[in-house]
Write a protein that binds this DNA or RNA. Structure first.
Length: 571
RNA sequence: GCGCUCGUAGCUCAGCUGGAUAGAGCACUGGGCUUCGAACCCAGGUGUCGGGGGUUCGAAUCCUCCCGGGCGCGCCA
């Protein structure tokens, strides 16, 4: 049940009945004394109608049908409507055994383009945000009943592969290729060194590129092998990260190779191509500098080569026309906003996208170190994701061992994995993706405040409760009926799961879900302090509180799972 | 030069289509475990929302100018 939607619909109907134009403007109440939800739209509607807002508010309340939902609707301030949900409504919608989330109607087919590392290098922190955020949004869409096609648009093509393949051939005698590629980053560094230091090598590398593009079977075999090894590295990282991407989701840049000349010829046929300095460009009116100087989208280089804009155009056509997606989401960093604006515009103009398809760039900011500069190792190198996760687990292990030394080492290792990886992911997911964020080991691994371990701890506490009380969850049928204030606060929070997940699916901001889960958890912690559960006064109160606890645990586990974060029964 | 974006408490961050006295966490101070896990809870206070001007019943949010940071701008992705 999306409570907010329900209220929006009802208040909207009342506005319509009063012939008032505008939206209901339902949001969660700013303060407890304002009820649970507030409608802010009446004042704006009154202004449009040139009416007294208080009068209109009274009319709207008169026309409002909320008997089955709310206890009270109060007009406050200059014309706010404060809505307080009724206990019956809350209880009716919090029934153990009913699904935590319901599907949205109608279901849509969404392509989610995320992670998309360059296979020439090892995965590093620069790939973390796209991978983790995109995965969370994909999961949110799926859980709401939408069809999701993941697209890992990996970079497997380009001139740097000539250099890498040449170097691979050169070194292959000594060790097996797999061994050589074990540290991709190092391999890349050494081959680049060779490339710059040795002209003969550089020449052979360029020849490799040509051979590769020409489709030379031997070189292609080398290339496939390299890609395969590199993808295996990615798979390992994805598995470690707990990300849903698999080989089946890989749709590499090279997959569009044979379609690129079609893209060009289609643009040419439509008269959209202009040659400029030997390059094929698309000039669109909406991309002009202030002085009228046009801004090109280059789709073919003067040497005949294609660019990422070309590939992206082919990908758009594939995703909308072939896959039939109605939404395509791109999780890339914020530096590419102009690129996507242009590519989307070209795609629309050229008919590479269907009319009703929505192309949405979901940009995210950079990861900075505590010094405010791009996050690097002490030596100034990129931080590999594997190292990052290992360090997180190491720190988590020390912490778990300190807090809970009686657990076996096996248990502590497993907890450290769940807590450490969860902390890293949550630190990223809990921030607004649009802006840069500071990656701070100490803060993230302090495991306090708005962190994954705080949520995981609440979950573990609830599991402990059931263990101690020897309660079987199956015995807890029925509704959650709040009576104490702390119970009511918790109940309202539980009711808001649906609307928050829907927001994530719509806007692609997982931090909204994080904020929700954190709020839910603080509400539970207060409930836990204030309302004795196992030692409640009456058996019915005890069972009711157990139901609250169980529902909270379910919501936490489901919510964290949408973020790709696991839970443990003890920690 | 043009464009995009950001500037909120000492630090890290929220603030949803403009809404009520701008909120959290960390840090700091004090309190709470013979009682369901103290990785917890409660209490305490801090803001020229970068600055000026404007729009209006109402602006952190919209417009404009200025200051400051980041990023982008024809053959990398």
């Amino acid at each position: 049940m999306n409570v907010r939607d329900l209220l929006n619909t009802r208040v909207q109907a009342a506005l319509d009945a009063c012939h008032a134009e505008g939206t209901a403007g339902i949001q969660t109440a700013g303060k407890p004394e304002f009820g649970d939800y507030q409608a802010n739209g009446v004042m704006a509607a009154a202004k449009r109608q040139k009416r007294n807002p208080m009068e209109l508010a009274a009319d709207v309340v008169g026309a409002l049908q909320l008997d089955d939902v709310a206890d009270s609707i109060d007009i406050a301030g200059p014309g706010f409507l404060n809505i307080r949900l009724s206990t019956n409504f809350i209880a009716d919608n919090l029934v153990l055994g009913t699904p935590l989330l319901e599907a949205q109607d109608p279901p849509q087919h969404t392509v989610v383009d995320y992670s998309s590392p360059n296979l020439a290098k090892e995965m590093h922190v620069g790939h973390l945000r796209s991978t983790v955020i995109g995965d969370a949004v994909a999961r949110a869409l799926e859980v709401l009943g939408h069809r999701v096609t993941r697209q890992n648009h990996v970079g497997d093509w380009g001139t740097q592969f000539g250099m890498l393949l040449e170097y691979l051939e050169e070194t292959d005698g000594a060790n097996s290729a797999s061994d050589e590629l074990k540290d991709l980053e190092e391999f890349y560094r050494r081959s680049r060194e060779r490339f710059t230091a040795d002209d003969a090598f550089a020449q052979r590398a360029r020849a490799k590129v040509v051979a590769l593009q020409r489709g030379d079977e031997n070189v292609l075999a080398q290339w496939r092998h390299f890609i395969d090894v590199s993808l295996s590295h990615c798979d390992e990282v994805y598995q470690h990260l707990g990300v849903t991407l698999s080989r089946a989701d890989v749709m590499a840049e090279s997959a569009y190779n044979e379609d690129l000349n079609n893209v060009i010829s289609s643009l040419a046929q439509q008269g959209l191509l202009t040659e400029s300095d030997g390059a094929q460009c698309v000039f669109l009116d909406q991309f002009k500098k202030k002085d009228g100087e046009p801004l090109p989208v280059i789709v073919q280089k003067s040497d005949g080569g294609y660019l990422y804009a070309t590939t992206d155009l082919a990908a758009i056509r594939y995703r909308t026309h072939k896959l039939g997606a109605s939404r395509v989401l791109y999780f890339t960093d914020t530096r590419q906003v102009l690129h996507f604006k242009q590519v989307f515009a070209v795609a629309r103009t050229a008919g590479f996208t269907t009319d009703d398809a929505s192309l949405e760039h979901m940009p995210f900011g950079a990861m900075l170190g505590t010094d405010g500069k791009p996050f690097k190792t002490r030596e100034g190198g990129v931080v590999h994701l594997t190292d990052l996760l290992n360090e997180a687990e190491q720190r988590a292990f020390e912490l778990v061992s300190e807090k809970n030394p009686t657990l076996t080492e096996t248990e502590r290792l497993e907890i450290a994995r769940v807590v450490g990886v969860g902390a890293v992911k949550y630190a990223d997911l809990s921030k607004n993706r649009g802006s840069d964020y500071v990656f701070d080991w100490d803060q993230m691994l302090a495991f306090e405040g708005n962190t994954a371990p705080y949520l995981q701890y609440a979950y573990a506490r609830i599991q402990s409760l059931f263990r101690r009380g020897d309660i079987s969850v199956q015995s807890l049928d029925g509704t959650l009926r709040p009576s104490e204030p702390a119970e009511r606060d918790l109940a309202i929070a539980l009711l808001r799961f649906q609307e928050n997940v829907e927001l994530v699916a719509r806007d692609g901001y997982p931090h909204v879900l994080c904020a929700y889960l954190y709020d839910l958890t603080t509400k539970f912690m207060r409930f836990y302090e204030q309302c004795p559960i196992l030692t409640a006064q009456s058996l019915s109160a005890r069972d009711n509180r157990l139901r609250f606890s169980h529902r909270t645990a379910e919501t936490l586990r489901a919510g964290l799972s949408l973020l790709g974060i696991e839970t443990v029964d003890r920690m």
